[in-house]
Structures are given as C-alpha cells and as structure tokens.
Design a protein around this nucleic acid. Structure first.
Lengths: 202, 202
DNA sequence: CGTCAATTTTAGCCAGACTAAATTATGGAC
DNA sequence: GTCCATAATTTAGTCTGGCTAAAATTGACG
C-alpha cells in the first residue's frame, strides 16, 4: 500500500517544524544562560558551528546521538529540552495563608494553589483540603504524583489496592494507574500534592 | 582540520549503541504494558512494522519526529523515554516512623528516606530533620526541587536572594541556581523535599 | 499438520544529518 | 569613521542512516 506510506511521510514532515523551533529556542536559551558561544558548544559536542546554528534556528534537526552530545555540552540533559513547557506566573516561595484557593467540582473540597518557582518547571504542587467523608472519582492520566498527608486520615486506592495513610505518611504513584482517594477520618484532611503534570489548564 | 572532524564522527557513533538499546527497551516495555502489537503502534505512528521492531531492538534509531510519533502511539511522551531511569527498591506508601534514616556529613542532621513508588519514577523525596543553627553548604546541581516546611523556621538562600519560611510554606527552585539553607529557629525543623534528581547514589 | 498473525530479516533508496568553506554580522579598539 | 577579530549565518555538497517494501521466520492455536 503506497498511499499510506506517502501519508506517513507527510505526517512526519509536518511534525518537524514545530518540534525543531521549540527545541532550537530552548537550546539557544540554555547556551546563552551559561554564556557559551556557538563555537564552544560545537567543540564540546564534536559538531560544527554551522550545524549548531542551524539547529538553534530550527533549520536542521539533530539525530538523537547528536542531541545527547549537544545537551551534554550545554551541561544539561536531553529530556530537559524535550519536556512540555508551561509558561505562567511564578513564585519561588509560597506562604501559608496567602495563597489563591480554588474550588473544582465539589464546593466543600478546595485547593491552595502553589505557583511554580520558575519558567520551565516540571513540578507542580498544591495543597488539598478534603472534608470528612469526601470520596474522589477514580482517575488515570499521564505523569506521576507524590502525596504527603499533612493532617487527617485518608484512604487511597491505587490500581485496586487500598492504602491507609495518616498524618506524615506519603504516597508516590504513576498517575497512569487508576487511583482515587477518600477521607476516612472525622476531620478535614490536608494533603500536599506534588506532581509532574500540569494543574488547572487555564 | 580534517582530523578533529573524523574524531567527531567517531564520538557520535559511539554514543549511539547504548542510547538505542535503552530507548528501545523502554519503548518495547511500554508497548507491552499497554498491550499493543508492533503493527498497531506502527499504524498509529505512520511507520512500518519492520522499523518499529528494529528500533525496539536497538538496531535503528528514529529521528526526533518519528520518535514523537512513536511516543504518541504509545500514549506517552518523548521525555518519558529519554529520562534517567533509577532502578531500585520501591514502595508506594511510606509511613511516618517506619523509615530508614540516613546521616550524611553532619551527624545532627538526618534524613528520612522515602522510597520511590514505582520503577522509572522521576520524583524522589525525603524528609529532612534540621537542628537549630544548622547551615548547609551552597549547592548547585541538575534538576529542580520543591520544599514544604513541615515544622520550624528556615531561611533559604537562592541565587543570592534570601527567603524566610515558616511551617506550611513552600519553596520551588531550579536546582542549578546556587542555593543553601539554614535553620534560624529555636527548634528542629522538618522539611519535606521532593525533587527530580536522584538521591543517595548507592 | 496447516493457518494466520506477530515479529524479524534483508536489500535498497534517497533525503536529511552534517560538513567545509565562504560570507555576513557584531563588538571593541583606535 | 576604519580596522580587525570573533561570532554567527549561509551555501553547496557528501554520504550514511532513517526508513521502506517484501521476504522469511517464529509462535500460537485448532
């Protein structure tokens, strides 16, 4: 079937421009951040000045091997340049009591929103206040998450397995596994959530 | 100078085998995890069965564009397959009071070690107990970190800027910026640390 | 055994990964 | 302003590896 193959090529080509442009911009930003010239990076990566220049301007795409070398020359790692980049308000420090709160769905459960500390951050965090008896829906999505139970008593169901957590306990899961939570205590529970996927898409 | 260029090519070639082998293994593992055949992934990625097979076995290397398509066909993302993969003991839940503790350097400061919840996790966490007056060295390294101050009062210096945190406050920084911390309170402080780089290399 | 689907192997094309060299742009000294 | 050195971009071209189509092999099942 030559027709699908032709279409495949077209698809692959279409994906390239935006990938290259973003990748190139990030590589240049990083190079400038560490104060290296094109020549220095090229020498360290064992590639030519011209090629690095073209990569940065999205004109050429490096192979994976070359990208590894460039990332290393930039004192970084490949995944750092290929991750999704949220761009929004940032605050290094977030003080208790002075945070924006959000109600999503249930009015009794609310979240303290913790802004990311710097552009390009991969971690996102929030403090979740869960009233007694509250049960969440079962979720499954990309990323991973870490939960520290600040106060209260919660039960977490992960891929059918149940875990009971008390204050000071932690939970760390691959978010792709179906998971849900329930406040099984008598008081409002507070959980600190830190994860790798974006919160509040707005 | 043709001699350096020749050497450059040799370097680039040497980097390939190990990259491809690891990448291919991860791609195959993911494909099996979601129960897709080579053909299904190939169709979804608009590539051929033979090529996917060769990628998985480290015989061929995809271009970035093709890798994006494959990752998407695997319902995942590129950086997920290119990140550093620690492999060790795992525990979804970590209970307070039943954790291994570590003393690194200072004997008065110790850490509660929180195991990662699953293989391939990118997040690492620990609880740090910092005695009054304790001052850390200034550090700078790859990754990013999120700190939640559980108890006490700490001052954090980040790239020359100082931040005072009380219980319940948070800090989120790019670990490459020079940073240090000091317990400026009268009691032992406990900080929860969640980061993207590996702890305790052992 | 035969059948069929899944995977691997083989042989080959050609475009893009990357080069060397020329040209242009930039910044600093005078 | 000119001059010079360095940094960056452009150009023209090579060649190899990204990727294909098709054949062969493997594995599962009745």
């Amino acid at each position: 079937m030559p027709a699908p193959a032709m279409e495949a090529t077209a698809t692959a080509k279409r994906a390239e421009p935006s990938i290259d442009k973003t990748l190139g911009e990030r590589l240049r930003a990083r190079r400038k951040a560490i104060g290296k010239t094109l020549k220095q990076v090229a020498d360290d990566a064992s590639l030519t000045v011209g090629f690095i220049s073209q990569i940065e301007r999205g004109i050429s795409t490096p192979s994976l091997a070359s990208l590894y070398n460039v990332a290393h020359a930039l004192e970084s790692s490949v995944d750092h340049f290929l991750s999704k980049a949220p761009a929004r308000h940032h605050s290094v420090v977030s003080h208790s009591g002075k945070r924006q709160t959000y109600h999503v769905g249930d009015t009794a459960r609310f979240y303290e929103f913790l802004e990311t500390g710097f552009p390009g951050a991969q971690l996102n965090a929030c403090l979740s206040h869960v009233p007694p008896g509250h049960v969440s829906e079962t979720m499954s999505h990309e990323g991973e998450e870490f939960v520290y139970l600040v106060t209260g008593e919660m039960r977490y169901s992960v891929d059918g397995v149940e875990y009971l957590l008390n204050a000071g306990d932690t939970l760390h899961i691959d978010s792709r596994t179906p998971h849900s939570s329930a406040n099984v205590g008598a008081e409002t529970a507070i959980e600190l959530w830190v994860g790798t996927m974006q919160l509040f898409p707005q």
